Simulated scan of single mutants.
Amino acid sequence: MGIIVQNITGNTALVIWPKMASCADSFYSVMYHPNWNSMLASYSRKSFQKEERVPASRSSFLVENLTPLTTYIVCVTCQSANPSTDQCRVFNTLERDPASASNTKKELALGIWLTSSILLLVIAAILLYGCLQLLCRRRRERLQGQNGTSEEDHGTAWTKSTVHISEELGRQSQLMQDSEEKHPGGIQLATIIENPSACKKPAMLTSKRREQVLTTGQCSAVN
C-alpha cells in the first residue's frame, strides 16, 4: 500500500497513504500501538491501542500524544478492516522536544502558581473575616463598658446631689433653730412692730440701734 511516516518528533508523527478506490464512499481507519516488539503479530484490530476514523477525502493524518523514545506500529485500512502487513509501518519516536518540554514546565509552573494564588486568597479571606469579627467584638465590649460607666456616673451624681440637698436642708433647719433659741420672742416682736395700732406713741427713728431697741421696749410695755 505504501504507507509513509514522516515528520516524526517525540510526541507526533505524520502518516501518509495512497488513496484506495474501495474507500471512495467510506472512510479510512488509522490504527497505532506502542511497544511493537511486545505486541502479538496478529494484525488484529483488537490488538491496537488507538484507532482514528479519517474522511475518504483525506490521505494523511497527524498522530499526536505519542511517548518519546518508543517504538510504534501504525496501520491504515478501509472501513475498519483488519490490516495486512503491507498496510502497516513501524517507526520510533524521538526524544522529547525542547519546546514541548519547556511548554510542559510552563504549564506545570502556571498550575502551581494558580493553586498557590487560590490558597493564599482563601487564607487571606479567612484572616480578614476573623479580624473583622474581633474588631466588632471589641467595639461592642467598649460600647457596653461606656454605657455602664455613664450609668454609674449618673447614679453617683444623683447621690451627691441628694446628699448636698439634704445637707443644705439640715443646715437651714439648724440655723432656724439657732435663731429661735437666741430670739424666742422674735416672731411676736416683729408682729408688734409691723402693727401700727400696737403702739400709741410713735417710735423715733434714730440712726442708733440702741434707741430703736428702747423704743420697741416701751411700746411693748404699753401693751
Rank of each mutant, 00 (worst) to 15 (best):
M176K: 06
G10C: 03
N65Q: 10
C219H: 00
G130M: 09
E194I: 01
S26C: 03
Q146P: 01
Y72F: 03
I16V: 11
L69A: 09
Y129N: 03
N7V: 02
Y43T: 07
A190P: 08
I123A: 11
L94T: 10
L135Y: 14
V122G: 07
Q212L: 05
D25G: 05
A21C: 04
S26Y: 04
A21K: 14
Y28W: 01
K200R: 10
H33R: 04
G155Y: 04
L128N: 10
Y43L: 14
C136V: 08
N82I: 00
A13V: 00
V76F: 04
A13D: 00
N7Y: 05
K106H: 11
D97G: 10
V163W: 09
T156L: 05
N147I: 02
C131S: 12
Y129T: 03
D97A: 06
S166P: 01
I112W: 09
L110Q: 10
Q172E: 04
V122H: 02
V74I: 07
S29K: 01
L121A: 15
S84L: 05
I187T: 03
L135M: 12
S84D: 06
E180A: 12
K19D: 15
L121H: 01
E211Q: 08
P55C: 08
I73S: 05
V90N: 03
L214A: 10
F48D: 01
M39R: 15
A81S: 13
A81I: 02
C75D: 07
L114S: 14
Y32Q: 06
P184S: 04
W36Q: 04
L205A: 10
K50R: 09
I4V: 13
V213F: 11
R96C: 06
K46P: 01
K182C: 10
I3F: 05
E107A: 15
S150I: 03
R171G: 03
N82R: 04
P34E: 01
L40T: 13
V54T: 01
T215D: 11
S26W: 03
M204S: 13
T70G: 01
L120C: 14
R96A: 09
S166R: 05
T149S: 09
S80N: 14
Q79L: 06
P18H: 03
M204T: 14
G155K: 05
A21T: 11
F61A: 01
F48K: 00
Q49W: 01
N11A: 12
